[in-house]
Design a protein around this nucleic acid. Structure first.
Length: 290
DNA sequence: TTCCGGTGTA
DNA sequence: TACACCGGAA
């Protein structure tokens, strides 16, 4: 475990408890985060670029997915699709193949759609304002804020799981059922407005470290939800169908039925969902990637 | 076997 | 507001 400056952390908490989040508490907090970052920062591939396209690809991949799983996929992806134009012009099949292993395949569809919109509507340049970014498919609060910070170095309020964990650890440790609006106040007040890009990289590294060593404090957040088991779920079946179609090309329903050994009605429902989600086409009981 | 998360939709 | 969505690691 990396060295943690417990003394400074305790002092920071003490000042906050006694006087609220005043200047000296904020200064101390920033010092702790930057001190850690100076020693332990990691140069992820997406930190070696400010290209908005690369940042977008990495942020979509990092939704719901740990950094270690993203690193290799990110490099392969931008190797295959080096620009908005190449991604927009590629087939969905190629893009989904490059996405295999990351999970939540809808993100690949959204990302390709983003590229098409950027090319058609924004002359190949990713918009620079939060609102336009949020209007793009697959980009919500966290991703739009991340792009503002990491691509454009703008001082927005950004909250995601590592940041949530970090602020709970420092200031809300004894609370339960914490809402994001409470955390955002800390995010806003402690933000290093002169260096948002560096600041959020540092925050996230620190948050990851807290998670690793002190458990997932996001469980204290209202956002936290437990999920259903993956084994035997529709999610699992969808993944299997998709990788089967990517490997074997167009396939009829009977082949899928014998491969998957599931109820005919259930298979039909799942295939219909995949069709509605824009993954596949269905004609005369033959299915293939769109 | 259990765990984890950001976005879109109903 | 609740729920669906992936797959690899612990």
């Amino acid at each position: 475990m990396p060295e943690i400056n417990s003394e400074k952390i305790q002092k920071c908490r003490d000042i906050y408890e006694k006087n609220g989040l005043n200047k000296s508490a904020i200064k101390l907090f920033q010092d702790i985060i930057y001190e850690y970052y100076d020693t332990y920062k990691i140069n992820f591939p997406w930190r070696q670029t400010e290209d908005p396209y690369h940042i977008l690809v990495s942020e979509i991949m990092l939704q719901q997915t740990q950094v270690n799983r993203v690193i290799k996929k990110f490099q392969e992806f931008i190797g295959k699709f080096p620009s908005f134009h190449t991604l927009a012009d590629s087939s969905l099949e190629e893009v989904l193949k490059a996405w295999q292993g990351l999970g939540y395949n809808r993100r690949a569809i959204y990302l390709k759609k983003c590229a098409e919109i950027v090319v058609d509507k924004y002359e190949g340049k990713l918009p620079k304002d939060r609102k336009s970014l949020k209007d793009l498919p697959g980009i919500g609060d966290a991703t739009s804020a991340s792009i503002m910070a990491f691509a454009y170095n703008k001082p927005v309020n950004l909250i995601e799981t590592n940041i949530r964990t970090l602020y709970i650890y420092f200031f809300l440790y004894n609370d339960e059922n914490i809402s994001d609006s409470d955390i955002i106040e800390f995010v806003e007040k402690t933000l290093d407005r002169n260096n948002p890009r560096k600041w959020y990289n540092a925050l996230m590294d620190y948050g990851r470290m807290i998670k690793k060593n002190f458990g997932n404090l996001s469980r204290k957040s209202k956002k936290y939800t437990k999920q259903k088991p993956f084994k035997g779920s529709d999610r699992q079946i969808r993944g299997i169908i998709l990788s089967f179609l990517l490997k074997n090309g167009e396939t009829n329903q009977k082949t899928l039925l014998t491969t998957l050994k599931i109820d005919n009605k259930r298979l039909f429902r799942i295939l219909n969902d995949l069709k509605n989600d824009g993954f596949i086409t269905a004609e005369a009981n033959v299915y293939k990637i769109l």
